[in-house]
């Protein structure tokens, strides 16, 4: 129990207000923060969480189409990362490493079929109205002009959920998150050719599922 108490004392840091030391840490690179976290400075790991939680959440959310699942998975990802921090050798960036944990955990989670069946979607922000892609899509003479934004979002997410886990992962990572084929291949531990092939078939399937948009 002594170890647990010691651990609790160490982890009590987030409750305290930001000190000068914390502000200094905020300017440090990931590598330095990771080294500090590996030496037991929990505040350094907290800063890494602050840095990447939203990006990780976005990826996991797009793969699950469920806000609650995404939240739980991102929490699990950081817990796993914290526990495995000792084995992190810095061969890749911290973000790539934690991103890989998140994607693999999400794929495993979806494979186990424990995800919530209903969609719990985030709101679409107002910035979409000025997005050139959105403007162009709305300007074309297709049924989507009459479709409300919310309905369009529902259809898109429903179509994504019909893809296999691996196909959905590559579509989200490439077409939504903007990652390169090489990075996706590294993350998913497969060849670039496999990534390209999966992307091709996933898009084919999506085009079939969203045929009213063409």
């Amino acid at each position: 129990m002594k170890l647990l108490d010691q651990f609790r004392t160490n982890r009590a840091a987030p409750a305290r207000p930001a000190t000068e030391h914390t502000i200094e840490l905020q300017h440090e690179e990931d590598e330095a923060l990771v080294r500090r976290a590996q030496r037991g400075q929990t505040r350094a790991f907290d800063l890494l969480i602050e840095r990447y939680k939203e990006r990780l959440y976005a990826t996991v959310y797009h793969m699950t189409s469920n806000r609650e699942d995404a939240h739980d998975l991102v929490q699990d990802t950081f817990i796993k990362a914290y526990r495995s921090l000792g084995s992190f050798k810095g061969q890749s960036s911290f973000y790539t490493w934690v991103y890989r944990i998140a994607v693999n955990r999400t794929i495993n989670f979806l494979k186990r079929g424990k995800n919530r069946t209903h969609h719990s979607l985030d709101n679409v922000d107002d910035a979409i109205q000025t997005d050139p892609d959105f403007v162009e899509l709305m300007s074309q003479d297709t049924p989507r002009r009459e479709t409300g934004l919310h309905e369009q979002q529902q259809r898109m997410n429903a179509a994504l959920q019909k893809l296999s886990d691996n196909h959905r992962a590559v579509v989200v990572l490439h077409d939504v998150q903007g990652m390169t084929h090489a990075d996706i291949a590294k993350m998913m531990k497969c060849s670039e050719g496999t990534v390209r092939s999966r992307l091709f078939y996933a898009r084919q399937q999506l085009q079939g599922l969203l045929s009213e948009y063409w």
């Binding site: 959440y57 679409v124 162009e136 939504v176 898009r203 969203l210």
Partner: peptide, 21 residues
Amino acid sequence: TGRLQRLLALKRHEQPPAGYF
């Protein structure tokens, strides 16, 4: 494919509510 990519890119505008984190 180009249209589909533009449609998928719009998903970036899906954001959790303010104060979610």
